[in-house]
């Protein structure tokens, strides 16, 4: 009986610790969200979202131990993969779009300058 009680005490400590960590992580997530909303540049927002992804990964890992469901770790792995993919693709696409716009504007101003020189 004594051994059982001690083991259950250990389990209680584990559970309360997991729940406390989950609450702390949730508060941190809110702080990250504030940065993502306020961030002046696009890179700011992506950095904040990436950070949120890391914290959510820790949350899922804690949950998998709290609920004793091993398969949640698979989801964690997929989450890491998807956040990496998202950051790479978004940054590449955004650089492409921005430089294309810049190129068009430069071409427009160049042509205008040539025309005005010819007229004068």
């Amino acid at each position: 009986m004594q051994i059982n009680e001690k083991v259950s005490a250990l389990d209680g400590v584990y559970q309360s610790m997991y729940i406390g960590i989950l609450i702390i992580l949730a508060i941190m997530l809110f702080a990250c969200l504030i940065r993502a909303v306020r961030g002046p540049r696009i890179a700011d927002r992506i950095v904040a979202v990436n950070m949120m992804g890391t914290m959510v990964m820790v949350m899922i890992a804690v949950l998998s131990l709290l609920l004793k469901e091993g398969f949640l770790i698979d989801i964690c792995l997929i989450y890491a993969l998807v956040s990496f993919l998202a950051v790479t693709v978004i940054s590449k696409v955004y650089i492409g779009v921005y430089t294309e716009k810049q190129h068009h504007i430069q071409a427009g101003t160049k042509r205008k300058g040539e025309e005005s020189n010819g007229n004068s």
Binding site: K92, I95, G96, T99, E100
Partner: peptide, 12 residues
């Protein structure tokens, strides 16, 4: 085919 995108990023 991504004319203006960064090409051949060695690290990536």
């Amino acid at each position: 085919d991504r004319r203006f995108e960064p090409k051949n990023d060695g690290i990536l």
